[in-house]
């Protein structure tokens, strides 16, 4: 039982990193990134491949974040020219293309077979074993990430993010290079997603392209919408709720015949909750994102 709880805590910690990144983009900057999962996947794949080929965990962690962040920075050049739903859709397209790449570049990723045997995190001669170790390590990293984002959001940089969310046009009119600033937000959010992905790979020890689909994007979107209005702590709390619900159900002693439909029924519930949240205009903290359209 305690192991179930710890497992749920660890998965929640991973997804919280993923969600905090998206909260920074959507909630604080108004960047509706529907392709966030691409960077979660990039982090996971990069670190899995590096460590499987013998690169030490810490080096691999830094390199993986660098790769994901670098790709976000590059992708930002064309895609940040777009705004609102078009930006979101282009990012979604990017994420699907990335997934196809994971699936098709089998020489590198082993395609649909995925990458098994990803080593457990180890550093300075110490290897993380057992659930408590993971929970503590990942919890610590989440705390660090939280403090980092919290500091950024409350700084002049965070203030400009909020200004862009409220009215990008106006931010330009007071001399802000909004392209650069939106890219900063994109890259910070990406680094958090990639960190989540790295931690995911080294905890689950097996990854495949089907871990990084639109469903994962919708799941974090649900988390962000659920936690909206309460900023970064809201996202973290919402993650524990949603992941707790998702992972918790798996361990209920359900009859075999019902077991097959548990997952889809859960997803249906998520869909309904998302609809209801939107309908209740539960999006106080979310940017309107359409400020540039004609009044």
């Amino acid at each position: 039982m305690i192991n179930y709880v710890l497992h749920i805590v660890i998965i929640s910690e991973i997804f919280a990193l993923f969600a905090v990144g998206l909260q920074l983009q959507i909630g604080d900057t108004g960047l509706y990134n529907f392709g966030h999962v691409a960077f979660f996947g990039l982090g996971a794949y990069a670190s899995a491949l590096l460590t499987v080929h013998g690169v030490p965990f810490l080096v691999s962690l830094v390199l993986s974040l660098g790769i994901a962040g670098g790709i976000a920075w590059l992708v930002g050049f064309p895609i940040l020219r777009l705004r609102g739903d078009y930006f979101g859709l282009a990012m979604l397209g990017f994420a699907e293309i990335m997934r196809k790449a994971f699936l098709n570049e089998a020489w590198l990723t082993r395609g649909p077979m995925g990458i098994p045997g990803i080593p457990r995190p180890s550093f300075f001669g110490f290897t993380v074993k057992g659930l408590p170790g993971f929970a503590v390590l990942y919890g610590g990293l989440l705390l660090l990430a939280f403090l980092f984002v919290h500091h950024v959001v409350r700084s002049p940089l965070g203030r400009v993010f909020h200004a862009i969310r409220d009215d990008e046009y106006s931010a330009t009119a007071v001399g802000k290079d909004t392209f650069r600033l939106r890219r900063v937000s994109l890259v910070i959010g990406t680094l958090l997603a990639a960190l989540g992905g790295v931690l995911w790979a080294h905890y689950i020890t097996f990854i495949s392209p089907s871990d990084f689909t639109l469903n994962e994007t919708i799941l974090v979107l649900l988390i962000v919408v659920l936690g909206s209005g309460w900023g970064i702590p809201g996202s973290i709390l919402a993650t524990f709720l949603v992941i707790g619900f998702q992972e918790g159900l798996r361990f209920l002693p359900l009859p075999e015949s019902f077991g097959r439909i548990v997952a889809p029924v859960q997803q249906m519930a998520f869909g309904l909750v998302l609809i209801l949240l939107v309908m209740r205009q539960h999006l106080k903290g979310l940017g309107k994102g359409e400020q540039l359209a004609e009044d």
Partner: peptide, 13 residues
């Protein structure tokens, strides 16, 4: 103006 920001923050931007 930046509607969710305070007057002070509007100016500090």
């Amino acid at each position: 103006i930046f509607e969710t920001l305070s007057l002070m923050d509007n100016l500090l931007i």
